[in-house]
Design a protein around this nucleic acid. Sequence first.
DNA 1: GTCTATATTCAGATAGAC
DNA 2: GTCTATCTGAATATAGAC
Lengths: 205, 205
Amino acid sequence: MVKKVIDQSAEEKILNAARKVFIQKGLDGARMQDIADEAGINKALLHYYFRTKEKLFEVIFKETAGKMFPKFEMILLSNDNLFDKIRKIIAGYLEMVIENPYLPLFVLNEVNRNSNLGLTSFFEKQKPVFAKKFVEAVEKEIAAGKIKPVSPPQLLINMMAMCVFPFLAKPIISTLWQIDELQFKSLMEQRKKDIADFIINSIKK
Amino acid sequence: MVKKVIDQSAEEKILNAARKVFIQKGLDGARMQDIADEAGINKALLHYYFRTKEKLFEVIFKETAGKMFPKFEMILLSNDNLFDKIRKIIAGYLEMVIENPYLPLFVLNEVNRNSNLGLTSFFEKQKPVFAKKFVEAVEKEIAAGKIKPVSPPQLLINMMAMCVFPFLAKPIISTLWQIDELQFKSLMEQRKKDIADFIINSIKK
DNA sequence: GTCTATATTCAGATAGAC
DNA sequence: GTCTATCTGAATATAGAC
């Protein structure tokens, strides 16, 4: 049987709807009815495909969390110097967050939940590869006397913080500086360069 | 009638319990039964004092959000130079977050909610005083040629980001770097100095 | 003011026809 | 596979005794 490409299968419709609703409202705030409405089908079908709300959520979460740790290994393995690596990581990461502004709060909420959905294991898989390479890259430059002796974990935390935080605090920032949607977006675009400069200025000798 | 000081009034017990439960689980995740249990009283009394769950939540939220914008005016009005002001703001802010590690996620969640509890107005009250003084302090130093020409909003975002973000991402950080509760705490203590240095290194000429 | 018992509403999940 | 109708449990909220 030929697969239709124009309209989505029920399962795809559900996943798209669930993604939208869960990311906006979180696990507790989301309603199966909301998801069904969004998908244009009925509640029963959600359970037919995914059995329970938690299982459906888990699918969405795992898929989503994957986006938060993009393919940095490639950049870290490249021949670029550290500063260029940092620029590329920040640009790529900020790009992703600009396109998925609700993603950070969604992931952070779930990660801070008590009853963990086995995502600790998810991040543990990423750890050895990524963290180790990052530490190596930084320590090499320190040893070479190119940058100040900074703690690699602190540096990485700062990079992530500056990319992600403004999207978490968007309502506060918009109110505080009296800016609208468009101005906020241009502020974020501007950050692509600003953050990298900020970081590099701070660590270069 | 003499007021007892040893044990709290029912209302105080409720507020303490509600604070704890709401901050940990959020509005949607919290259960009135949890709050009643925590307070050592029964559900009916919650409604007697606060009518609805939403009203109780609102009380807790407003009280809590107040802590997030501490008394920076005092520091900004002081005779310290900008670098010392920055050091003091960061130290004070980080201190507060270390003592209330669940507070940032709680506040950011509510602030990002659609059906706002009138907290936009809350932040609007703080805006003119704080933001204006901060801009003035930064622009003065730029004009004097003491620091590089940085955007004050971006600078403030960066400061807040570096203070708050590690507590939002604590589970990720702990897993990524394989550290326990104690090590995390000492990492955060270390940040008090690190962040200020990081910022100042980045903007000084 | 504080409790027990109960009403009410709502949401997740299932049964069963088509 | 997809629907309507329904069950079941849970959570907010109220009634009413003490």
